[in-house]
């Protein structure tokens, strides 16, 4: 059987044309392998050959993306490859975007398997990880050997129609797909093993990684709470009856801002919850159970606080992306600052 045909995409730097000063060059096609192609081909061990290499300037690609994609696609198509490889791009942003965009485009248009490689924080990784296999590499070309080995191995598997394993097995960037599989050990045994590792201070791998949370130091306290203007915020989904902003019951795409001028208390006639992650009957019967406006009004009249900010903010914290929640709070906090709100009471269900 003859060897599989591969076309490789690289930038001006790895194409040995030049650095940043040559990043404007348009794509050109070279017969055979160039630069990192040597390392890739060594790993193919004769099972595949790089028949041609496209070299393109990173700035050119990103500034003329549509045109560059078409030109390069034509070059790739002409070489009749069985598979397309781009990069690895490591942590080079424009190169990563070019590799991801080009690989995804070749896959879509020519319907052949594609592989690229980059560092997890390369913006190209987030943009294309769900479309294509992106081998997770180190953040600099010092990781070339390892990257070439893994990219070549995955490429050969795809060429031979072998089953592609999970991201942790093949070392590609997780695509956010859940796959059912049978573990060798049952859950209780795995959990105990993990615990034993942990107790001995040895490394272990969680099966349910938590997202990264950063920390914000506490602000100084409110100097005079009896004069402070206080705002109410909730992730419990309390909204005026009928949910006028159509806040979703899970994975909310927005937050609401609701006027509570002169509202003394949130009744079942006027307010309800849009939250789909808890039994809504108690909140629908009396929304003060989630947003304690009635009590805060009493405190306002008794002089225990200065005043209540005339709007409250609400979203549904049910499978809502951290990124979304963060954006909502960033947004309404600007208003709170501008309106001289001195403290916030945030309630969650």
């Amino acid at each position: 059987m003859s060897a599989f045909r591969i076309v490789h995409y690289i930038n001006q730097f790895f194409g040995q044309i030049g650095g940043e000063e040559m990043a404007h060059i348009p794509p050109e096609y070279r017969e055979g392998k160039v630069g990192p192609g040597l390392a890739l081909e060594a790993n193919f061990k004769g099972e595949a050959v790089i028949v041609g290499t496209v070299v393109c300037g990173d700035s050119y690609f990103n500034e003329n993306m549509e045109e560059a994609k078409e030109t390069i696609l034509a070059m790739v198509e002409k070489a009749k490859p069985d598979l397309f490889i781009a990069g690895p791009a490591f942590n080079a942003g424009r190169y990563g975007v070019a590799c991801g965009a080009m690989a995804a485009y070749v896959k879509e248009k020519l319907n052949i398997p594609v592989v690229t490689g980059m560092y997890i924080e390369n913006p190209g990784a987030d943009m294309y990880k769900t479309d294509i296999y992106i081998i997770s590499t180190r953040n600099s070309a010092a990781g070339m050997r390892d990257a070439a080995k893994k990219m070549a191995a995955l490429a050969l598997k795809m060429l031979k129609n072998e089953k592609i394993g999970a991201s942790s097995e093949e070392d590609y960037i997780p695509q956010g797909k859940r796959v059912n599989l049978f573990e060798k050990l049952r859950g209780s045994e795995r959990a105990v093993n993990m615990l034993l590792q942990k107790l001995q201070g040895k490394p272990f791998t969680t099966e349910y990684p938590m997202p990264d949370f950063d920390r914000v130091p506490p602000n100084p306290p409110v100097a005079d709470i009896q004069r402070a203007k206080i705002a109410l915020v909730t992730s419990g989904g309390i909204v005026p009856k009928g949910n006028p902003d159509h806040i979703e019951s899970s994975n909310a795409s927005k937050y609401g801002r609701y006027d509570i001028h002169g509202v003394m208390n949130l009744t079942s006639d006027t307010y309800e919850t849009a939250h789909g992650g808890y039994d809504p009957s108690y909140a629908n019967a009396d929304a003060d159970r989630v947003v304690p406006l009635d009590v805060l009004r009493d405190f306002e009249m008794e002089g225990k606080i200065g005043s209540i900010y005339e709007y409250f903010f609400s979203t549904v914290g049910n499978g809502t992306a951290v990124k979304s929640a963060k954006a909502y709070a960033e947004d309404f906090s600007k208003e709170l600052i501008k309106e001289n709100v001195q403290a916030v009471i945030l309630t969650s269900t």
Binding site: D214, R215, V216, P218, N219, P220, P221, V222, V233, S235, T315, G317, A325, K326, Y328, A329, E330, S333, K334, L336, I337, V341, Q342, A343, V344, I345, L346
Partner: peptide, 12 residues
């Protein structure tokens, strides 16, 4: 949200 409010400089 709580962290972004804190980050904005308002005690929460």
């Amino acid at each position: 949200m709580v962290k972004e409010i804190e980050r904005a400089g308002i005690p929460v």
